[in-house]
Amino acid sequence: MRASLFITCYNDTLFPETGRAVVTLLERLGVEVEFHPQQTCCGQMHANTGFRGEAFSLAKRLICMYGEAEAVVIPSSSCVAMIRDQYAGLVEELGDGALGRELETLLPRVYELSEFLVDRLGVEDVGAYFPHRVTYHASCHGLRALNLGNGPLRLLAKVRGLELAPLKNLDRCCGFGGTFAIKNGEVSSAMLTAKLQDVLATGSEYCTALDNSCLLHLGGALHRQFAGMKTIHMAEILASTQDAVAGHPGDGDLLPGAPVGSWR
């Protein structure tokens, strides 16, 4: 089994540790990981802001890039939703029949990370160890666009040492929404405050998700408020084992023994 990792632009730039965790995890499960060096962005930001032409050109780039891949694994539910829900419309409007056919062959090969594990590889116990209290933020795209269902929770349930704390109002948005957080900064902040109340009420050490964009938002607020709770992509939890517990940059003080990433 070979999987081509589409890391996404913001993970590449801001969350390299998530990508490293995906590689560790998949290789541990016997998957051969590929990485296309020309990859950049799926075009979601442009599409959702109304820049259809730009979004289409990035979509086309991605479709052509993964023509040969056996499976494309993406550790970001909103980017998977972009490809599944919006590419067809963009290609229909601005592309041609050939590209449309290529997209058709690509879509069944595109997987969000948890989908790849649960649906494609058929594993729930990935042999992970993460001895912490964790709450799971479903993220809107994972919940509604991808219908991930309880797959992610089943993965977490099998992590040794992990204590899962249920999150109230699981289906409510954290207020990120890409440029929404900028264009409607005040409203976004109000939504974030409401979400944080629920997240903090779980008394967890970590808030995890399958989308670092939500975690960027939540983590930024948690840090601002000195809340003590950390955010962590689920890939990093699943990659952790008894020998190598994942940690975040700057987490050294919180997690003795955690390997410090390539931070600074």
């Binding site: 590449d12 730039t13 990508g19 264009k183 900064g185 960027l216 930024g220 607020a221 840090h223 390539s262």
Partner: peptide, 22 residues
Amino acid sequence: AKWTETRDLRGLPQQTFHAWWA
């Protein structure tokens, strides 16, 4: 500033994922 009014932002790590991969 619209972002940092109410939230902090992670700084950019030293090494990107693709650089690490390479």
